[in-house]
């Protein structure tokens, strides 16, 4: 319980940190970003009433000291209202609400799959010292050293331009409306295959290598050898003693890697025109749509922190030591 409380405390601090970073980002901009934004909005449409106030709060400009700006900003963010996005012609929250689930589903599924496959292969490589699995290491290392977007480019080129196999872009058939039916689902799945493959391929090597190394390290731990001495069946020793312990650092890494994968998926979404949160973030950066940028960064941070939090809590369950000692 204490562990849980401590983790809650930490992630609140981290959230506050992310919020503060987000507050200072617009200060990098020259001039008055709120004014600039309003000007851009007026060029395309009529900004909703009160929009300028919201922008002032978000960008931390206008009357008063920096402390009052900061306070106004925090209040504004606590309403989860990031104003209007001129580049998308919708409220920021609405854009995010539409895009975030796509990214979460894609990144979440792909990362978990990659973790499972990589960790299993790594455990096998470490346990059996299998030559074929060992030979995989340079290959997966090479894949791991590729930028996500480059792998995406290759996949698009090969499957799209050469094989004409899979739909190339978008997150579902543009003619289909989102609905909970098979047609929509299968279309979404088809569109997600290449992006997911990209994420899985690039991450695989890391999970595999780390699990392989940890398995080798764990195998020389006394408790594994003691289990062997007890005549416990090999399978049980491998799973209950070796893998069970070897996986712990991978779980910690899993938490940290979530942020990395989200980062990588941003560019990848661009290549596939997969309309997730990363795609919109890039659009926003390119169009100087500051409020959308701020909103998206906020939501990405929250999502990543939340994912980290969940993994940390899970870790508390699989490693009894964390619950007790600290």
């Amino acid at each position: 319980m204490k562990y849980f409380a401590r983790k809650c405390g930490f992630y609140l601090v981290a959230l506050w940190g992310a919020l503060t970073v987000n507050f200072f980002i617009p200060r990098l901009l020259p001039g008055n970003p709120a004014q600039i934004m309003l000007g851009k909005m007026e060029m395309t449409s009529t900004p909703p009433p009160g929009e300028y106030k919201i922008l002032e709060h978000l960008m931390g400009v206008g009357q008063g000291s920096i402390v009052s700006h900061y306070w106004a900003y925090l209040v504004q963010v606590s309403h989860l209202d990031f104003g209007f996005s001129f580049s998308q012609g919708e409220t920021v929250t609405h854009v995010i609400y539409q895009a975030l689930p796509w990214t979460l589903a894609l990144v979440g599924t792909a990362t978990v799959l990659s973790f499972i496959i990589g960790t299993t292969l790594g455990a096998l490589a470490g346990w059996t010292r299998n030559r074929w699995l060992e030979a995989l290491v340079p290959v997966t290392t090479f894949l791991t050293a590729m930028p996500y977007f480059f792998v995406a480019l290759i996949l698009v080129y090969y499957f799209g331009f050469i094989m004409h196999w899979l739909p190339l872009s978008g997150d579902s058939d543009p003619l289909l409306l989102p609905a909970w039916n098979w047609t929509f689902f299968s279309s979404a799945l088809q569109h997600a295959i290449l992006p997911a493959a990209t994420l899985i391929l690039v991450q695989l090597g890391g999970w595999m290598m780390s699990m392989r190394n940890m398995t080798l390290t764990t195998l020389s731990e006394d408790y594994v050898w003691a289990a062997e001495a007890k005549g416990i069946k090999s399978r049980r020793v491998m799973i209950g003693y070796a893998a069970r312990n070897a996986i712990l650092p991978s779980v910690t890494n899993f938490a940290i890697s979530i942020g990395m994968v989200v980062g990588g998926s941003i560019l990848m979404e661009l290549v596939f025109s997969y309309q997730g949160i990363g795609y919109y973030l890039i659009q926003a950066v390119e169009n100087d749509d500051y409020s959308l940028v701020q909103g998206i960064f906020f939501f990405i941070s929250v999502a990543v922190l939340l994912a980290n939090f969940i993994v940390d809590v899970m870790y508390g369950f699989i490693d009894p030591r964390t619950r007790q000692t600290q």
Binding site: A14, G17, L28, M260, G263, L281, Y290
Partner: peptide, 23 residues
């Protein structure tokens, strides 16, 4: 240590994109 752990969980790449986009 607290600062380190906070920096560790704030997603770096989005932040880098945003900052360099603004700069």
């Amino acid at each position: 240590n607290l600062v380190t752990n906070v920096v560790l969980v704030i997603p770096a790449v989005p932040l880098i994109i945003v900052v360099s986009g603004f700069l």
